[in-house]
């Protein structure tokens, strides 16, 4: 099988069908589910807005420069989450809010870019083409927000102190979608604390890849 290009695949092409290294079945299913969720309306953002966020994030990963004034607030936030999340500060998020991007809308942008990173980096890593955006549907945002969420120890509303993978739970469907892909791609939730867990890799191999990636991203959580 030949490797896919670093470009979106054809509309009729199944996700990851041109991968050089085949995806495991449960992870292929998780990517398909994530992609379907990412490309339709969310709790606050429309389908069109989520598509724009995906396009901006992909441009950032392709080396595009800082966003221009026509990109919109959600797009601007998406650019920074994709390209320099460690450079975001509480002042950055406060500034977005002052300019009209609510903290819950910002949280949805963060969730979309983060899950897109999982889908796109996995696809590229396997040697597959990136998923192509489908036509924009007419669905409206669901409006599903957990009203009990408040700002605790981070910059956005949460239901508890910040703890991965629960940081999106102010937007319940986004939180569920995060856990769906997190569990399939990393380790089953019930095995997170099991130091003897192993599958195709040993636990030390798994944690070494995680630690090296986090080190390069300058992330310490």
């Amino acid at each position: 099988m030949t490797g896919g290009a670093d470009t979106p695949n054809e509309p009729s092409q199944a996700l990851l069908s041109d991968a050089v290294v085949a995806p495991q079945a449960n992870r292929l299913a998780a990517v398909e589910q994530a992609w379907q969720n990412l490309t339709t309306a969310g709790p606050i953002l429309t389908t069109r807005q989520r598509h724009e966020i995906i396009a901006v994030a992909r441009s950032a990963w392709a080396g595009a420069g800082a966003p221009n004034s026509t990109i919109g607030l959600a797009g601007e936030a998406a650019y920074w989450v994709a390209s320099d999340p460690g450079g975001i500060t509480k002042e950055t998020v406060g500034g977005f809010e002052a300019r009209g991007l609510s903290r819950l809308a910002y949280l949805e942008v963060v969730g979309v870019v983060a899950r897109l990173a999982n889908v796109d980096f996995y696809s590229r890593g396997l040697g597959a083409s990136l998923p192509l955006l489908p036509p924009i549907d007419a669905l409206l945002p669901t409006g599903r927000v957990n009203g009990a969420a408040t700002i605790t120890d981070s910059w956005v509303p949460m239901l508890s102190p910040a703890l991965a993978p629960f940081v999106l739970d102010a937007l319940p469907a986004e939180g569920e979608a995060l856990r769906d892909i997190h569990e399939a791609m990393y380790i089953p939730m019930e095995s997170l604390g099991d130091g003897t867990y192993e599958d195709e890799l040993t636990r030390p191999q798994i944690e070494y890849v995680a630690a090296r990636t986090s080190y390069l991203n300058e992330c310490f959580y």
Binding site: Q24, R27, W80, V81, A82, P85, G86, I88, T89, K90, V93, L107, V110, G111, V113, A114, R115, A117, N118, V119, F121, Y122, G125, D153, S154, W155, V156, M158, A162, A164, P165, V167, L168, L178, I181, H182, M185, Y186, L201, I206, V209, A210, T213, S214, N217, C219, Y221
Partner: peptide, 18 residues
């Protein structure tokens, strides 16, 4: 899959100010 997942989690936790 692990590296891709940490691309997700690193961005998520950095961007929410955890």
């Amino acid at each position: 899959s692990i590296c891709a997942t940490y691309q997700m989690m690193n961005r998520l936790l950095d961007a929410v100010g955890a």
